[in-house]
């Protein structure tokens, strides 16, 4: 008895309690996401989705999809922006994004031409918001130049501002800024990188 006590004096009795129990944490996380949604305290739900254009981050509020981001935009930084600009009540909670993920999967498989999703526009304001609102009118497989979009917005000289609006589009793919190209027909820049833009345009031409 004395020996046992002496022998174990240096040990951590909490060895018997695992520091990491991944299965329990996964179960508890899923339960938290579900309860938070049900109780109305989940302000921003997010998930990731693997696509031919890389892993996309999808985020939604109660009102609808609020943010889509490419991997090159740094998902951790995007989540921090959501915490700062929308609410820090941010959780990985795939359920709220099931429909968005399904429609994006169909789009990348070539089986969907338009998105039917509620959108939360709160991350885009003023003229940029106005420009982005014009983009869904550019149909699948078509393109317009920055100058054409500027003209359509009623400010034909605001070509650079149209470029900025597209570059800061919080909802790429679903709000098709990839269909806005240079006047010479070359793709031009894109929030997800020039390769992603070429990929989307090629997908829609097929």
């Amino acid at each position: 008895m004395t020996m046992t006590a002496t022998g174990s004096a240096g040990r951590d009795p909490f060895e018997g309690l695992p520091e990491h129990d991944d299965e329990a944490m996964a179960r508890l996380h899923a339960r938290l996401a579900e309860q938070a949604g049900a109780e109305g305290v989940l302000d921003v739900a997010y998930r990731t989705l693997d696509t031919p254009a890389g892993t996309l981050l999808l985020a939604a509020t109660d009102a609808g999809v609020v943010r889509i981001a490419y991997a090159v935009q740094d998902h951790a930084a995007v989540l921090q922006q959501l915490a700062d600009r929308v609410s820090p009540r941010v959780l990985r909670a795939p359920g709220r994004l099931d429909e968005a993920a399904r429609q994006l999967d169909e789009y990348f498989a070539g089986r969907r031409r338009t998105f039917e999703l509620p959108l939360d526009w709160r991350l885009s304001k003023g003229y940029r918001r106005q420009v982005l609102g014009l983009l869904p009118a550019i149909g699948y497989g078509r393109t317009e130049s920055y100058a054409q979009v500027a003209a359509a917005s009623g400010s034909p000289r605001a070509v650079r501002a149209v470029g900025t609006a597209c570059a800061t589009n919080p909802l790429p793919v679903v709000v098709p800024c990839h269909r806005v190209v240079r006047s010479d027909g070359s793709p031009g820049q894109y929030a997800g990188g020039a390769d992603a833009k070429r990929l989307l345009l090629a997908l829609e031409e097929a």
Binding site: H29, L32, Y46, L79, Q80, A83, D84, P88, R89, V90
Partner: peptide, 11 residues
Amino acid sequence: MSKPPFEQIVT
């Protein structure tokens, strides 16, 4: 002050 997303607190 900037606060991390709650997901990070859980992790």
